[in-house]
Amino acid sequence: MSEKIALSIDDLSFSYGGKKALDSIDFKIRAGECTILLGPNGAGKSTLFSLITHLYDTHQGHIELCGFDVRQQTRQALALLGVVFQQTTLDMDLSVLQNLRYHASLHGLSRKVAMQRIQKELEQLNMYDRRFEKIRQLNGGHRRRVEIARALLHKPKVLLLDEPTVGLDVPSRQSIVDYVHHLAANENMAVLWASHLIDEIYPNDHLVVLHKGQVKANGSVNDVLQFSQSTSIKEAFYQLTQGEQA
């Protein structure tokens, strides 16, 4: 596993008015590592994602993406970032191909390069045959696959996924979980996966447990189990979040 740091969060805090959403967050993600950001609803996961993607500005603390400060070098940082948001962000009235070509144009890819990458990514996710279908005609699992393909078109170094499997059936969830872990292991991609579903965690994953805007634990699965003196992730999560359900 490479030791190269792909995403670095240092002393990050954020408030909505007087309400603190994130409180001195610190953690790092390395290339080739899949980090699960585990936290109950309202833990601050989506706020953290909005800060990493610069939808909100960082007022306190630092975020670096492959060495680029997200606040100061926003465009260089965003060029290396692929994102799958919690809500679907596809245009329902456009086809799969049109949605992906739109994204490719936003990243400055030529038509030829875009078409090659679209074919490759859609084939890997078994969606190439459906490229002319409108998003509205696809089920939730297939829409998610299109969003993952889209997030990978510009070959990002860091992939963010904000609860991408919510509302999906078990086979769809499993295929997405497997594919994203494959990307981290075989494509040397750094993955940050926000979730509250414990069964999405692999034994080799890195864990960050977020609760009420604070990092409660940070390390490998074994580290977190030891730290919380637990025998299972479920138990650890329960203890670290003081009894709140995952």
């Binding site: 465009r75 245009d91 936003l106």
Partner: peptide, 14 residues
Amino acid sequence: EMGSMRILLVSPLP
């Protein structure tokens, strides 16, 4: 509200 604006705003352009 639906989220597709985010894709535009997180693209690497001013």
